[in-house]
Nucleic acid binder design. Structure first.
Lengths: 105, 105
DNA sequence: TATATAGTTAGCAAAATGGCTAACGATACG
DNA sequence: CGTATCGTTAGCCATTTTGCTAACTATATA
C-alpha cells in the first residue's frame, strides 16, 4: 500500500482545503483567501495534497487550477472499509461470536 | 469534525498495526513481536490510536487487549465519501458536465 | 517473599512538520 | 518596455513526532 492519502489528510487545514475543493476547483489565490495563513503556506499544503494524489493541478498561464481527485478518496475509503470488514468478518465464526463481541464496545 | 483518525493513520506503522488488528485483537506484546521496533514505541503508537478512537483497550490483569473500533473507520470513510460525492455532485449540472469532466483525470 | 512478566513513563536526540518573510520566475497588461 | 499579478522557492525558526534506553508500576508465579 503506497497510500499517502492519510498522511496528506492528517493536517486539519488540509482537510479543510479538501472540503473547500469539494465544492469546486479553485486557484491557489482563491484557496488562500479562505484561510488565515500566507500564500506560501497554502501553496505547500496544496503541493503536498497533489503529491499524495488527492488533488490535481492544471496550469493555465500563470494561474493554477486545483481540483479534487476522487479516486484518491475512493481508495482511502476502500482501505478503511476493507479493514473494518475483515474485523467484522471475525464474528462470522459462530462459536466465538458472543465472547469476541464483548470486546467491540 | 473532530476527526483525529486521519492523523492517527498518517504513520505507515500505525496503518500496519490496524491491519494487524483487523485480523484479531492482540496484546501490546503480540503486536510488538510483529514489528521491528521496541515495545515502548509500539505502546505509544497504540496509545495514540486509542486516543484517536481507532482502537479500544481492555485491561485484564497485566495484559492489555487492543481491538479495532470499527466505528472510527466507518466515520473516516464516510467523510471521504461525502467529499467525493459533493465533488461528483457538481457534474449533475448538465451544462458544465463535459467541460468540467475533463478536469477529473 | 522473591522473581518474572506486561506494560507504561521519563528523558533524550534526530527528523519531520508547519508557519513566516523575502526574493524569485513567469505570465499578463498598460 | 515597465509594472502588476500568480505562484513557487529559499531560508529561518518553533513545535511536533518518532525512535531509543533506562527505570518504573503492577500483576502473576515459584
Amino acid at each position: 500500500m503506497a497510500n499517502d492519502t492519510f498522511r496528506a489528510l492528517a493536517h486539519p487545514m488540509r482537510r479543510d482545503i479538501v472540503e473547500r475543493l469539494s465544492t469546486g476547483a479553485a486557484t491557489v489565490g482563491e484557496v488562500t483567501r479562505d484561510f488565515a495563513v500566507s500564500k506560501p503556506t497554502i501553496s505547500r499544503h496544496l503541493k503536498l495534497l497533489e503529491e499524495a494524489g488527492v488533488v490535481t493541478r492544471v496550469v493555465d498561464g500563470r494561474t493554477h487550477r486545483l481540483a479534487l481527485r476522487p479516486q484518491a478518496l475512493v481508495e482511502a475509503s476502500a482501505w478503511l472499509e476493507s479493514q473494518r470488514e475483515r474485523w467484522e468478518g471475525l464474528f462470522d465464526v459462530v462459536g466465538e461470536y458472543l465472547d469476541e463481541r464483548r470486546d467491540t464496545r
